[in-house]
Design a protein around this nucleic acid. Sequence first.
DNA 1: TACTGATTTAGTACTTGGTACTAAAACGTG
DNA 2: CACGTTTTAGTACCAAGTACTAAATCAGTA
Lengths: 186, 186
Amino acid sequence: MRLSKRERQKKLKLALEAEPFLTDEEMARRYGVSIQTIRLDRMELGIPELRGRMKHMAERNFDHVRSLYPEEVIGQVTELKLDQSGVSKLEIREEHVFARNRIARGHHLFAQANSLAVAVVDAELVLTATASIRFVRPVRLGEICVAKAHVTHVTPRRTQVDVRTFVEDETVFQGIFDVYRSKEDQ
Amino acid sequence: MRLSKRERQKKLKLALEAEPFLTDEEMARRYGVSIQTIRLDRMELGIPELRGRMKHMAERNFDHVRSLYPEEVIGQVTELKLDQSGVSKLEIREEHVFARNRIARGHHLFAQANSLAVAVVDAELVLTATASIRFVRPVRLGEICVAKAHVTHVTPRRTQVDVRTFVEDETVFQGIFDVYRSKEDQ
DNA sequence: TACTGATTTAGTACTTGGTACTAAAACGTG
DNA sequence: CACGTTTTAGTACCAAGTACTAAATCAGTA
């Protein structure tokens, strides 16, 4: 047995997210198991057959063309005082959550905080160097995250930005970003 | 002859633009002709079969949306040992970088590492609690990031996962993820 | 009216990527 | 060793076709 059942199923699931057009045959070949095993796996995982997956994707494309562009700042910036502070708002939508439990994936909260931290720093080139973060409580579909950033420390090449994200009055995320910058005021 | 051949074919073409998911059978029924006639029509018009049309739409949708849409794991998982280790690969494309300097936005590297950390943990519910991260050097457009995750510590409700991301042999990102889990082995 | 070419229909064999089901084998662990 | 789990094998069947052959029908005309 090269892979345990659980591992194979997890990989299978992950592989299909990246490449939804794999046939059972191809997957069987990849994992060195029989086609029946793959089918049992799909059944257990509730993954539909190739044609079902294609149809679903085609339909989604057909009835509403996606318009999710990569934004400069994740979320909407509502306040901004360069080198001082900033606020951004992000509504947790379908595309931000795990399908299973409708809890927001951590990296979206991180992205909101990180891009805000970078946005408040006024320099030509701004890059995050290190960060220490805490996901205080899970955020659910529909909740609105308000991230508040404050610059706390400035050295010649670094700026420290503290970000705290709230849902209503509750802190849900907290992060300290150490941001590198260069060519300031050019 | 209720409709001339030309008229039928013209209608058919228009109908398929509005409703691409029609089967030959349904179209035959609609126009009161045999299924073979519809097939001849499609051939003359160069219209592919239903499955081909669906596949085409799904593919177009996939290419367009793939990077913006939530994948289970950001990047492609190449190795996975549950509760032990995992490896994922992510090519830095246009949509990952700042337009200005073509350097990858930090949150994409974070997302790759974070989602891999979550994927290696084998439990029903897995959420990142805290993380300490370091962006060791900027990553540029075209570079391929290989993230390697290792479970370093396990307690009843928490798993610590260390992730290091490389471009070639160079470390570009480093993170320690403290991951919360529940309903293990149920 | 009979003929002719275009159009339509019928029917068969075969394809892909499956489902649904039964049954046998192999594995792995107390 | 026995027993449950996991894997494999194999069959019948399905949708929605392709590819092909052949017959029937129609429409206009010689």
